[in-house]
Structures are given as C-alpha cells and as structure tokens.
C-alpha cells in the first residue's frame, strides 16, 4: 500500500523530472557525439566542469542564463580538445576520453580552490525557481529546456541535411567524404556541441537542482548517461524514455528507503541500484545491433 501511495504522489513525479533533467541533457550530448562516430568518455569530467563553471559564473554576477552559457562554453572547450585528439589525430577514444574526464575534474577542483581559497563551505546562489506553468509547475525552466533539447536533437539528426551528414559520418565516413563533405569538421562539431550539452547537464545540478557546488556531486551520472545512450539504441526519444525510467526508479528508491520495507535494508543497496540498473540495461540491450557502424573508428582519408 505504501508503494502505491508513492507512485500516485505528485512530489514523486516532480522528482522524476528533476532527477531526469541533467541526464537528458548529457545523454543527448553523448548521443550526438556517438552518432557522428566518436565515443566521449570525457562526459563525467565535462559534467563536473559544467556544474562548476555555471555556478561560479552566476556567483560572479552573471544572470542564470549567462551561467548556462558559460557552462556550455566550458563543455565546448573540453569537447574541442577531445575532438582534436580523437578525430584528426585518431587516438584511442577510450584513453583520450578517460584522460579528458581526469583533466576536467582536476582542473575544476583546482579552479575551485584558487577561486575560493578561504571558504569552508561553498557559497550559495539564487538558482532557477519553479515556473508554476501548467502541469509541470514545480519544474524550473531548465527542465523544459531539457525536454526541448530532445525534440531539437531528433529533428536536426533526422530531418535536416546536416543531421543526415552527421549520422553518415558515424556510419560510413568514406561515403560522406565521397560526397565532398568534411568528415573531420562534422565529427569535431558534433563532439563540441555534444560536450556543451553535457556541461549544461552538469550545470543543472548547481543552477536548478541545488544552489551550490560540491565535489563529487556528479557522482557517476556521466557513466550512467553512456549506458542510457546504449539503452536508447542511439535514438533521442528512446533515450529520453530510458532517462525517465531511470529517474523514476531513482525517485522510487529514495522514497522506498523511508518506508517500513526499506528501513530493514542497508541504504547502500538503494544507492547502488542506479549503477546496477545501468549495467542491467546494457546487458538487456546487448543483443540489439544498432550501434553506429563507424563508432570508435577514426577516419583517415585514403585509408580503408
């Protein structure tokens, strides 16, 4: 009975969207990169950098949307670095991505300490407030932006010539080249924009979900998004569904912990569930072969 009460409560559904929002931004970002043929394991670090960049910009006096823009810019910068290493240089996308996550995370922590050497707890900002609009009244405008990002990503990738070229760069780059289109520029652009979205996803944590920056606040969300892209079979709509399901489960487990059923179980089990669920999603989807054919394959003109 308790379980049913959770599922029909309005706060539960509000929490689902709140938890899903950063995942939606970052999952779309990763999906765009992978559709163009580049795995971006920098996602975890780029989300950390975005969370910090957006927050410190607003703390320094920029308006909230200015913070989102700064976060996007920080993501683009790290994305261009990842793109440079993996696209023209053709380095291992695994190694470069892990390196970018390490670099972005360390640079963020360093910048935090340099910017705020004296503080014991991070200062707070005034975050985005609930809009009060219609059915999703308890959400901030950033959640609406996350949902819009899904629609825009789907529209660009499947309804525009640019999207066709991007997807082709991830399926058959030689054919794209044969059409006279620049494969490297397409992939670099996809990684830059995708990384920008990942950083905006990170900034949702500091500008909307909370109002401050903490170390470890991203806490594996980036890796979860990598799993969500696979779960969504590289399609924006299905990836959105995956993010909502995932967030639904996360919101449910938080509430389950407070019931009589949950009190008897160790809380770490609940905290581990999102990660185990992500592994499970990967296993369930493993039989599907919808992977972009040229994912993780560097393209070098004149090579087969």
């Amino acid at each position: 009975m308790e379980l049913f009460d959770i599922l029909v409560s309005a706060t539960f559904w509000a929490a689902v969207l709140r938890i899903a929002s950063p995942l939606i931004f970052a999952t779309m970002g990763e999906l765009i990169c992978e559709r163009a043929g580049v795995l971006n394991l920098g996602i975890e670090g780029i989300m950390v950098a975005g969370a910090f960049a957006g927050w410190i910009a607003v703390y320094a006096g920029l308006p909230l949307w200015g913070g989102v823009a700064v976060a996007f810019g920080a993501g683009v910068a790290f994305g261009l670095l990842h793109g440079l290493l993996t696209v023209p240089l053709g380095l291992s996308q695994h190694v470069a991505g892990i390196g970018i996550t390490m670099l972005a995370t360390a640079a963020t922590y360093f910048a935090y300490r340099v910017a705020l050497p004296e503080v014991s707890s991070p200062p707070k900002i005034t975050a985005f407030q609930p809009t009060g609009w219609a059915v999703l009244g308890s959400q901030t405008v950033l959640t609406w932006a996350a949902l819009a990002t899904v629609a825009v990503t789907g529209w660009v990738l499947w309804r525009t010539p640019l999207g066709l070229a991007l997807r082709a760069a991830g399926e058959n780059p030689a054919a794209v080249e044969a059409q006279g289109l620049p494969v490297h520029a397409l992939r670099m652009g996809a990684v830059a924009v995708g990384s920008g979205l990942m950083a905006v996803g990170g900034s949702f944590l500091t500008l909307s979900a909370f109002n401050s920056f903490f170390f470890e606040m991203v806490n594996g969300r980036g890796w979860v998004c990598i799993a969500l892209v696979v779960f969504g079979a590289w399609r924006p709509g299905r990836a959105l569904l995956g993010a909502l399901l995932f967030a639904g489960f996360d919101a449910f487990q938080i509430r389950l912990q407070q019931t009589s059923l949950g009190a008897g179980l160790p809380y770490q089990l609940f905290l581990a569930m999102p990660y185990l669920l992500s592994v499970l999603a990967l296993v369930v989807m493993s039989r599907r072969t919808e992977v972009p054919a040229a994912l993780m394959t560097p393209y070098n003109k004149g090579e087969r």
Binding site: L81, L85, L89, A96, G99, I100, M102, T105, Y109
Partner: peptide
C-alpha cells in the same frame, strides 16, 4: 592531478 592528466594526453598524442 592536472599534471598527470595532461601528461597522459600529451604522451598519447
């Protein structure tokens, strides 16, 4: 940590 990450990326390049 920044030095190690940069060393990694510089070295693979």
């Amino acid at each position: 940590d920044i030095l190690l990450a940069s060393a990694l990326l510089f070295m693979v390049a």
